[in-house]
Design a protein around this nucleic acid. Structure first.
Lengths: 244, 244
DNA sequence: GAGTGGTCTAGACCACGAC
DNA sequence: TCGTGGTCTAGACCACTCT
């Protein structure tokens, strides 16, 4: 195979070009999530570069979170985020952290995408989005209320699901049913109050203080594939950030 | 000079040992913040290792935030955090971000360190701490209320200062007056309400919702050197976090 | 033992900054 | 022009995993 790196990608080092080329091959599905990439030596021969150059390219992909390297085993395409739970912003149960909360899908509806959503999702004109709400429960007590918006036609396979067919963890479900890998996300936190409907669902009083987490999730190619708004009791809010 | 890397640091790669050795030399003040380290070739000769090995050691120090490398210029010891402002958690003025808020020192007092503080600061028995409050203002309007605790004798040079002699930015002041470099910090966010004293100082009502940021700041050797608690209007709170 | 990534070497040349 | 870090090569050996 002639995968020789040409000079078409200007302004980059050789390993930079290699990284983007290999990334493209992954995005085109040449190697599926969880699968092993060719070994360093194989790639260095295929591209006609030194081992060290391949290694530098690979370390870029590791930084991007696109591949994962394991000594003695190989280099593997990432499976993306899985838990990435909103619970990391809240502390509902001081005792156990490892619990996966239950999930209740409340209602799903199909609607036209707004202008802003079409822009984020890079949708064509008059495309639709799938919007639904769900409640997450710990020990049968509601703790988080989520509104989730997904672009069509990418998430078409979810249209026919009954509420009880949804998994408790959405991101692995996106991968299995729609082939979508969630690679990273952006969370915006702010403070607000629950309206009466939200309050009833969380078994709190109307006007109760809450923290709002607005998440935009992206796939391997930096395409936004989910908009999620999560509300939880402000008194349960706790978050730890590391500065530089 | 015989700086040959011996086998005394077990379980590490050669560049790992080199990194800790060079880090120690920095911590012992051999090269001051802002100064240039010896070049790669000089270090490789001094330690009798290949250039690439020095480079790997250096990239570890870059990751640690201890040095900064500039092509064509050299490798420099970090000057640490400077602004690192609490304003990044709040949005008081949609227009301008670049403004440095004014600073008002309210009161300073010397007191015994609590057990927890002695532990964090690694203080000897019966050491004291310097505690003070300050208000930060934007356009002459108070926006943040801070309580700051510093260990003695490290921060002794600040004991004799009059309130007006304090700088608006504390971290550069720590460096200049006490030789303390703030390298990283841990912020813990939660939600609460202002008591009557806090409310009066922020010109808000008692019981007004607020966000509390509890910060622990550390120097180059991972020693905690400041405990800071900041309160601000919850309605001005906004924070963006990147997930993986 | 065969195959993987991790470490290390001893060179070479390039890109950038300062003088 | 010189010194700096950045890139690249073509080897070698080590540590780990699987079978």
């Amino acid at each position: 195979m002639d995968h020789t790196i040409t000079g078409t990608l200007l302004g980059q080092s050789r390993y930079g070009k290699l990284a983007t080329v290999i990334k493209d091959r992954i995005l085109h599905g040449e190697w599926q999530p969880g699968q092993m990439l060719p070994s360093e030596t194989a790639l260095s021969e295929e591209y006609g570069v030194a081992l060290g150059t391949i290694r530098q390219a690979m370390s870029l992909l590791v930084q991007d979170g696109i591949v994962q390297r394991l000594q003695g085993k190989g280099t593997f395409v990432t499976r993306g985020l899985n838990g990435a739970s909103m619970l990391r912003f809240f502390r509902f149960n001081p005792a156990d952290d490892v619990v996966t909360p239950q999930s209740n899908i409340l209602q799903t509806r199909l609607r036209e995408a707004s202008a802003e959503e079409r822009l984020l999702f890079k949708q064509a004109e008059k495309q639709k989005v799938l919007q639904f709400e769900r409640i997450r429960l710990l020990n049968d007590e509601p703790c988080l209320l989520e509104t989730i918006i997904l672009p069509l036609p990418l998430f078409g396979p979810l249209l026919d699901l009954e509420p009880h067919e949804w998994d408790a963890l959405l991101y692995p479900m996106y991968r299995n049913r729609c082939g979508v890998i969630v690679n990273h996300a952006q969370d915006r936190l702010s403070f607000s109050h629950l309206n009466s409907i939200q309050a009833r669902r969380l078994k709190l009083n109307s006007g109760h203080p809450c923290v709002v987490v607005e998440r935009k999730a992206y796939d391997l190619s930096n395409q936004c594939i989910e908009i999620r708004t999560t509300r939880g009791d402000a008194y349960s809010f706790t978050y730890t950030a590391h500065v530089k």
